[in-house]
Amino acid sequence: MYHKTQCEGFQCEQAMLEVPGDAETVREGVLDKLIAWMRQRSLFVLAYGTGCGAIEMRPLMTSRFDAERFGIIGAATPRQADVLVISGYLALKTLRRVIRSYEQMQEPKYVIGLGSCTINGGMYWDSYNTVKQVDRYIPIDIYVNGCMPRPEALIEGFVALQQRIKQGGKAGYHQYRENIDWYKANQRKALGEEMPPAYTYDWYHAGGVA
């Protein structure tokens, strides 16, 4: 979890990734730890698929890879989901839908970016119409890189996410809440007039009450 607000450059980013800052340590009691443990055992996944990424998502739920043994099952709607898996590139049109879905999810919520396209645009790096860094528009908790990553890699990403949830601390949705203006400015820059109407995210400013 980092954003280029504090420093620039590869080594600085690496340091921020490896050493959690003061802001990331949250005091937690026994009950919080228990709830966090149950939470990481039960992840409902909203899979957002664009082409090749969606093909790698399917075997995850079937008998061969069996993600259900980790408590990971598919959710029907964003309302019920905990994890949003963005598998592949986002075009400007789909970015709008993904933002809308992400904002409909109930907290705590997490995002997994699957494939190189979510990290730096991947093979669409010079496309005029795709988003290069999804992290600038919605906060991503775990990246699974590869083009495309195998289901095993995705399972490893899920396990890493489970570890992170178990540890507690701040996740992507905290970042989104705290830096909502930064995210909204980025989204407005990318989407322009196609920006979702303000009432869809007003409640972020109103202190969490819809």
Binding site: I35, M38, R39, R41, S42, F44, T62, S63, R64, D66, E68, R69, G71, D82, Q106, E107, P108, G208
Partner: peptide
């Protein structure tokens, strides 16, 4: 396949109770 643990429904239920 192996399937979830027998407590899975309890975990799911508790998780939903502690969501916003």
């Amino acid at each position: 396949r192996w399937g979830p643990s027998i407590w899975q429904n309890f975990f799911d239920n508790m998780k939903f109770f502690f969501k916003s």
